[in-house]
Amino acid sequence: MKSSHFLEISGLSMSFGGLEAVSNLNLQISEGEIFGLIGPNGAGKSTILNMIGGTLKPTSGKILFKGQDITGLPVHRKAMIGIGRLYQANILFNNFTLVENVLVALHMKIKFNLLKVLFQRRLLARQEKNLHERAANILETVGLIDIKDEVAVNLPHGQQRLLGLAIALAMEPALILLDEPVTGMAADEVEKMLDTTISLIKKFGMTCIIIEHNLRAVMSVCDRVAVVNFGCKIAEEETTKIFNHPKVIEAYLGGEDQCCWE
């Protein structure tokens, strides 16, 4: 049966030994939506993203992306069918310049093989030149063009986040997974980063799942939000209504019967 949803997660569970990190998760995300995933630390949010776009293979359950079963697919295949990712930690090609970082991310935009490399070098050189321009464009949109020849590891944290975003955007994914895009950023950077991110996502018409602890950021950008705690989805609502949900209040502020000061 072909699913009408862009991303459909059904009955997804993941256990590490005896620990059930995610249990029986169901989510439907439609195209063009910006979906927030929030919850306390260790709730299983990153595990969920890792199963959608990373290397984790769920214990049970199914993930359908544009009607295609992508459960347990190798990570480069997921990238090929259009899932891009910004990691929580700044994972970059550390000793590469910014341009090289983005050039590598444009890997899927060029077809090359041994024969072409040896005998059609002009053709490949022309294609590489186009990619170079494209990489410069991408760096310009995230505002890093002035330092494009800097080595990635030398950048301050905020700019490394932006570079991570540039890498994810360079792949032109249909679905982009942002794992705490504004983590560790100063207040003035947060706004800038969010503005850049959301305007670009809207411009390219991408669907997006955001994990974020900064609730104000979540409120300002997401269309819908799901709250996860102890591996279970405890609420899923439109952003404006989510914080009225009793279970959410309980998860974040503690319920009446679990007061810890007594």
Partner: peptide, 30 residues
């Protein structure tokens, strides 16, 4: 032959894998 291969995208891809195989996979490199 080795030189041409290294100066081509094969070389860039190899170095990228050395830098971070995790991110290389995530941008679609097998």
């Amino acid at each position: 032959i080795l030189y041409l291969v290294e100066k081509s995208r094969y070389g860039l891809t190899s170095r990228a894998i050395k830098e971070s195989s995790q991110l290389s996979g995530a941008v679609g490199i097998n």
